[in-house]
């Protein structure tokens, strides 16, 4: 072995795109153990356990149906109000929970990060995956409600676009992860952003077609809304695929996709840079 051959070199700074995917792969077991931990620990010592996964979207849907449907009488594109709201809520929740949970990565894991080394990216990735499982459970609820209306109400006209769902889920996960790690990197030193996340996500929900249909907006509004919130075109497209009403627009969808790529790449780069020294400032 030559004198200069080392397996690992620890240096102050490295190039921007120095992401060690091989190492990330080596730690895949840890990734799944984290997923398991997140999943198992949340519902330990609860009686209802995973049933809570259903309760949250059901109650939200009921509240939305009463307030926005019955009191405010907002238009639901001619669809049954509960199904309309539940669709929006189920998909929006996945994005929102990915974003909120990953945005705390550094602060909430500081005690582990301060004592052991593993690729830090494992933690936000595990959050995205455990939320995917939670989403999967909630999606089953959505499917049940969807099938009920499908057989009882002929306004529901699903089409082949619903097969694109996996692609949309990946884009949603990418957006949530990208925004999340970007924010978590910024909060290591300046905590200001944590305040933003809390109500920001909630406000952003109103900027997506969950309580109102896209079809009610003018083209100009749609454009700005989509630029502000890349989730809106995706939720609209999913609604179109499953319910037959909504807007499936490739132009807006590609904006969302580009959005995701940019946010994710920037997020990973910034995260990678911050993770080296964040213990000193967090």
């Amino acid at each position: 072995m030559t004198e200069e051959k080392y397996d690992l070199v620890i240096k102050p700074k490295s190039s921007l795109l120095d992401i060690n995917f091989k190492e990330l792969w080596k730690y895949k077991d840890l990734l799944f153990l984290f997923v398991k931990r997140d999943f198992v620990s949340v519902y330990k010592q609860t009686i209802l356990g995973p049933v809570w996964f259903f309760i949250q979207p059901i109650l939200t849907t009921i509240v939305f149906t009463i307030i926005f449907g019955n009191v405010a009488k907002l238009d639901t594109d001619g669809l049954p109000a509960p199904l309309f709201y539940l669709t929006g809520i189920t998909f929006w929740n996945y994005f929102a929970s990915c974003l909120t949970a990953t945005s705390n990565t550094f602060v909430s894991n500081a005690s582990i990060f301060g004592k052991a080394y593993f690729p830090r990216l494992i933690t936000p990735l595990s959050v995205v995956i455990s939320n995917l499982i939670k989403f999967g459970v909630q999606f089953i609820l959505f499917l049940c409600v969807f099938l009920y209306y499908y057989f009882t109400d002929d306004r529901i006209q699903p089409n082949a676009y619903m097969l694109l769902l996996p692609v949309f889920v990946i884009i949603m996960a990418g957006l949530g992860l990208g925004f999340g790690i970007l924010i978590s990197s910024l909060t290591t030193k300046y905590r200001d952003f944590t305040f933003l996340v809390g109500f920001g996500v909630q406000l952003l929900m109103y900027a997506s077609p969950i309580i109102y249909p896209f079809s009610k907006l003018s083209a100009e509004w749609r454009f700005w809304l989509n630029l502000l919130n890349p989730m809106s075109s995706i939720i609209e497209a999913i609604k179109y695929g499953f319910l037959g009403k909504g807007v499936f627009d490739l132009f807006y969808l590609s904006i969302s996709f580009i959005y995701m790529v940019v946010v994710l790449v920037t997020g990973v780069i910034v995260f990678n840079k911050i993770e080296k020294n964040f213990m000193d400032t967090v």
């Binding site: 072995m1 051959k5 080392y6 397996d7 690992l8 070199v9 620890i10 240096k11 102050p12 700074k13 990060f113 301060g114 004592k115 052991a116 080394y117 080296k276 020294n277 213990m279 000193d280």
Partner: peptide, 16 residues
């Protein structure tokens, strides 16, 4: 620094 929890300000460490 040796455990890669934080990185050095200057200098380098090579490990085999």
């Amino acid at each position: 620094i040796l455990s890669r929890v934080t990185s050095p300000t200057t200098g380098s460490i090579s490990v085999r």
